[in-house]
Design a protein around this nucleic acid. Structure first.
Lengths: 160, 160
DNA sequence: CGTGAAGTGGGGAATTGTGGTGAATTGTGG
DNA sequence: CCACAATTCACCACAATTCCCCACTTCACG
């Protein structure tokens, strides 16, 4: 999605307790429903937003987190075409959803298609949001990460 | 100490509570539980984070330590794919856990698989975190260290 | 030995994952 | 504008898993 400004800068650091962590596998039923990991459901009680991720996955934000991003994007100058395109790409692909009583959401078909998700998905915690991946695509992404994690970390000058 | 021998912790000076030192062997039961060495449990009361290590092991951090690393990573721009990958590799492999009343944690299956851990593990103190190794892999790693300690130190360009 | 702490295993209760059924809602054609 | 089919929604039910607590055994130390 090209270079879309300093969106990251507005994300306030999350505490360890409400950080999204881990990797969880779920089935998707014929209705397109997928369960959100039980330990995260409270964060999404008041609503959530799903949207296209920059990579081939679906991102899931709690409402407050999404609001912050939205505010940042709407504050960009609409005179620039890149701003307008970013705005479209962000909002047009996004859906405001709610958990059902079992803690599931219905993922819109367009997003499922984009992410290549059929009947089995992996939900991944990435600090301040969740990502939903097709099982195979996630395996591929993960193997890339495994190979390159050390180099990437070194390049980013971050030490674990 | 029975079959949970304390192998290397001979020189550990009392009163150095903020440093993890030593090498301890534990069994892992069918539920994937492993005991944290009793002397370190206080550091982990109130939570801990386990994650994939860069080598074939699991790393265990107290919350404050983990928070510091998370902050470094979230300060990177998510507009870059390498940053997103590092973020994923870090957070997706991590789990926020708590000790049960016996001082054990349940290691998620994905991490056990990654580290090749089945029914017996070695817990190693590495200054500001613990590492959990499969017994055999740890033996191999240790023999490498034993043989090449001098070269390794030199390659790391550290003067002791 | 007696006592306490640590390592290990197990069992019952609560939670979670998952599929389904009937009511409400939407869209479409007459 | 109405009727009817198709879809969506909200809730129910059950199997499987996970969680939490208790119990036993071994070892260290008086």
């Amino acid at each position: 999605m090209g270079n879309c400004g300093e969106l990251w800068a507005l994300w306030e650091p999350r505490g360890v307790w409400d950080m999204f962590l881990g990797e969880y596998e779920y089935n998707i039923d014929q209705k397109g429903r997928v369960a959100i990991p039980a330990r995260f459901r409270d964060e999404f009680r008041g609503g959530l937003v799903v949207a296209r991720g920059y990579d081939r996955c679906i991102v899931v934000y709690p409402l407050p987190e999404w609001q912050r991003m939205a505010d940042k994007i709407t504050s960009l100058p609409l005179t620039r075409q890149t701003s307008r395109r970013l705005s479209r790409a962000t909002f047009a692909s996004a859906y405001n959803l709610e958990l059902d009583r079992q803690g599931r959401v219905i993922i819109p078909a367009s997003l499922r298609d984009y992410a290549g998700i059929r009947d089995s998905a992996v939900i991944v915690g990435v600090h301040n949001c969740l990502e939903i991946w097709d099982k195979d695509l996630w395996a591929a992404e993960k193997s890339i990460m495994t190979e390159q994690a050390a180099e990437i970390a070194e390049a980013a000058e971050v030490a674990l």
